[in-house]
């Protein structure tokens, strides 16, 4: 081949290969794989497993801290999640509010540390673990409303969609990728939608009523899956998170 034709030929071949690859590329699938983030050193090694972990069914007194948790609702401490964008870190008062009434663990090193901050009247300088870029505004409230209030799913399961198995950790560590592609992989999925009953009350699902569109800011296209159930995609509006 003439040497001047060689490069264009290679280029054309390359473009065709890329084109073929892109043409067969399918819709993104739901990404659920784990992607462990860095271990963040916290001022106090807070044991999430002890607070939120499952109860020890054998030892009913739950005395062994390595074996059982208290099954405290995530939202008891991260109380802003259901009413604001951020989940929030509990104030020191919340920790002390319980722990001043739990004398049995008062001499444990972490609790001693906790009360040092309390006596010094200083907030604990917790470090951010799930730190999104400044141009991303994830809304906790929306997701809590959708999954916990409307669909009645268990709290720990719902929080775990993005935060992983925090109830088995000491201090939290990022388990999911929390990238835009990862978020979108869920929003691009056709989720089953449950229509409200005659009184407009959601029957454990998401109403597609006359006025309330839980998915997008426009009435979603009502598509049906193979089982005949009504499905809709999540919002895909850039200005929902970036603004």
């Amino acid at each position: 081949m003439h040497r001047y034709l060689c490069f264009p030929a290679i280029l054309a071949g390359f473009l065709m290969a890329v084109g073929c690859y892109a043409a067969t590329d399918q819709q993104p699938t739901l990404t659920t794989e784990d992607d462990l983030g860095p271990q963040v050193q916290q001022p106090i090694e807070f044991p999430h497993y002890r607070h939120a972990g499952n109860r020890n069914t054998v030892d009913l007194t739950n005395s062994d801290p390595t074996k059982g948790g208290m099954e405290i609702n995530c939202q008891y401490c991260h109380t802003y999640a259901r009413r604001s964008l951020t989940a929030g870190i509990p104030p020191l008062q919340k920790c002390v509010g319980c722990h001043q009434n739990i004398p049995s663990v008062r001499d444990k090193p972490r609790i001693v540390e906790l009360f040092k901050y309390w006596d010094a009247k200083k907030a604990i300088p917790w470090k951010k673990v799930h730190d999104l870029p400044d141009f991303v505004r994830f809304n906790h409230e929306r997701h809590i409303k959708r999954f916990i209030e409307q669909q009645g799913r268990p709290v720990q399961e719902v929080c775990g969609y993005c935060h992983g198995q925090v109830k088995e950790m000491t201090t939290a560590r990022r388990q999911k990728p929390i990238t835009m592609g990862w978020c979108v992989s869920c929003h691009m999925k056709e989720h089953v939608v449950v229509v409200a009953n005659k009184d407009g009350i959601p029957e454990g699902g998401t109403p597609l009523g006359k006025q309330a569109y839980w998915y997008t800011f426009q009435k979603p296209a009502e598509t049906k899956n193979a089982a005949g159930e009504l499905t809709a995609k999540g919002p895909n509006d850039c200005w929902l998170c970036h603004k």
């Binding site: 809304n139 409230e141 929306r142 409303k145 407009g200 109403p207 009523g209 006025q211 309330a212 569109y213 839980w214 800011f217 200005w239 929902l240 603004k243």
Partner: peptide, 21 residues
């Protein structure tokens, strides 16, 4: 200009949570 989209989104999300527009 964004038409103050941050205010619109906040209002839309609140309304959505209460099942109205």
């Amino acid at each position: 200009c964004t038409f103050c989209v941050q205010r619109l989104r906040a209002a839309e999300v609140t309304a959505k949570g209460e099942g109205r527009i």
